[in-house]
Design a protein around this nucleic acid. Structure first.
Lengths: 115, 115
DNA sequence: GCGATACTTAACCCTGTGCTTAACCAATCC
DNA sequence: GGATTGGTTAAGCACAGGGTTAAGTATCGC
């Protein structure tokens, strides 16, 4: 079992590559086989496999093999983890900014009082 | 000037490390000096510097030096880019899921018609 | 000025990532 | 059943990432 932080590592790392984001974008329009994913890409099939493994390790994508073709699909919940982390950080930051605004206003007020 | 994809690369890559996420979390509560960022971390100061450089390269953090201390702060807009990309993907996926639901319903309907 | 403080740079090490080619296995197709 | 298609594994290579120590530079406080 992976802890939260390790899962975020894998998710963000998976997202940090344009090839993998491209594969993800393709998959967000529907399932695809490995060769379908590879077709638009300028790299070899084994390279695509490795990217796919990174995506699966991160939980962003799942796949299953039937006959000789492997079908890949997006796992939507996984993106939620990353999105949640980001929006939490933004919330924290926003809360601090609010306090800072108050602080600035107080400073301005003092400026008026003294000038 | 960096294009969108390169900026996403840097942003997600910066987020893909627990040390950097920790620094970011610290900074979301307010500006800090380099040594303040380093204090809770089990690594050397140069290592912290390098993480800081990664964060600055991604645009997530900015810093300025005054006297001998460098003060680092979050750049809130930068997180928006990453968040936007994720939510766009989710929107695409959701749209496809809707179409899939329709499809399933149509299939069910046909099942009823034939059975 | 002198020592302590706060970074910064440089040089290096080890591991991980992204890619390749070559060879291999397993389902289809004719 | 032999060729083709779809995927997989293995081996190897180049380079980037994350860490170290050691040595430098620029304030600050006395």
């Amino acid at each position: 079992m992976l802890n939260q932080s390790a899962r975020l590592d894998l998710a963000f790392q998976a997202l940090a590559d344009p090839t993998r984001r491209g594969m993800l974008a393709r998959l967000s329009q529907g399932p695809a086989s490995v060769s379908e994913l590879a077709r638009p890409l300028p790299i070899s099939l084994p390279a695509v496999l490795q990217h796919l493994q990174a995506l699966e390790a991160s939980g962003l994508v799942s796949s299953e093999k039937k006959g000789r073709i492997r079908t890949c699909r997006i796992v939507p919940e996984a993106l939620g983890l990353a999105e949640t982390w980001i929006s939490e950080q933004r919330a924290l930051w926003a809360a601090r900014l609010d306090r800072f605004d108050e602080h600035v206003m107080r400073l301005k007020q003092e400026g008026k009082d003294n000038g």
